[in-house]
Amino acid sequence: MGLSMTEQAARHVRETLAKRGKGQGIRIGVKTSGCSGLSYVLEFVDTPNPEDTAFAFGDVKLFVDPKSLVYLDGTELDFTREGLNQGFRFNNPNVKNTCGCGESFTT
């Protein structure tokens, strides 16, 4: 099982953690939400949970809880800028369907 991160995403996480002044990385997970069933959750990690799986990309770490890992296996985390909009993009090969607004998905 694994995840990957583009250099753009790693740079954004690195810069955000530097501005924040602390943190070991970010946790990516899923929660039940939206009209399709699941949505992504991101949060800063100051102290990893013992059950987290860590993925290192240079000096940037992604942490994933065991429940979420089955839904996120193979996912690439990217950071994109399109016009005035910017944000993380999840390129998840497990997604079978998304809702109309793009906020939730099913696997």
Rank of each mutant, 00 (worst) to 15 (best):
M1G: 14
M1Y: 10
G2I: 09
S4K: 13
S4P: 05
T6M: 04
T6C: 07
E7Y: 04
E7C: 00
E7G: 01
E7P: 03
Q8A: 15
Q8V: 02
Q8F: 06
Q8G: 04
A9P: 06
R11I: 11
R11F: 04
H12T: 05
V13S: 01
V13F: 01
R14H: 14
E15A: 12
E15P: 09
E15T: 10
E15V: 02
L17S: 08
R20S: 06
R20C: 05
G21D: 11
G23Q: 11
G23I: 08
Q24C: 07
I26C: 02
I26T: 02
R27I: 07
I28E: 00
G29K: 05
G29F: 04
K31L: 13
K31D: 07
K31S: 13
T32A: 09
T32E: 15
G34M: 02
G34Y: 11
G34R: 08
G34V: 11
C35M: 14
C35D: 13
C35A: 15
G37Y: 02
L38A: 07
S39K: 00
S39G: 13
Y40F: 07
E43L: 00
F44H: 09
F44Y: 14
F44V: 14
F44L: 08
V45I: 15
V45T: 03
D46P: 07
P48I: 06
N49L: 13
P50K: 09
P50F: 09
E51D: 15
E51P: 04
D52M: 08
D52W: 01
T53M: 07
A54F: 02
F55G: 10
F55E: 11
F55N: 06
F57N: 05
G58H: 03
G58A: 03
D59T: 11
D59E: 15
K61P: 00
K61Y: 03
L62R: 04
F63W: 05
F63H: 10
V64H: 03
V64Q: 04
V64N: 00
D65Y: 06
S68P: 07
L69I: 00
Y71F: 13
Y71N: 13
D73T: 14
D73Q: 15
G74Q: 12
T75Q: 03
T75E: 06
T75L: 12
L77K: 00
L77M: 15
D78G: 08
F79C: 03
R81F: 04
E82K: 10
E82Y: 09
E82P: 02
Q86I: 01
Q86S: 14
Q86Y: 11
F88W: 09
F90L: 11
F90M: 10
N92Q: 09
P93A: 03
N94A: 09
N94D: 04
V95S: 01
V95Y: 04
K96A: 07
N97P: 00
N97L: 14
N97H: 02
C99H: 08
C99A: 09
G100Q: 07
G100K: 12
G100P: 05
G100F: 07
E103A: 13
E103F: 14
S104Q: 00
S104H: 02
F105V: 12
F105E: 06
F105I: 07
T106Y: 08
T106A: 15
T107R: 15
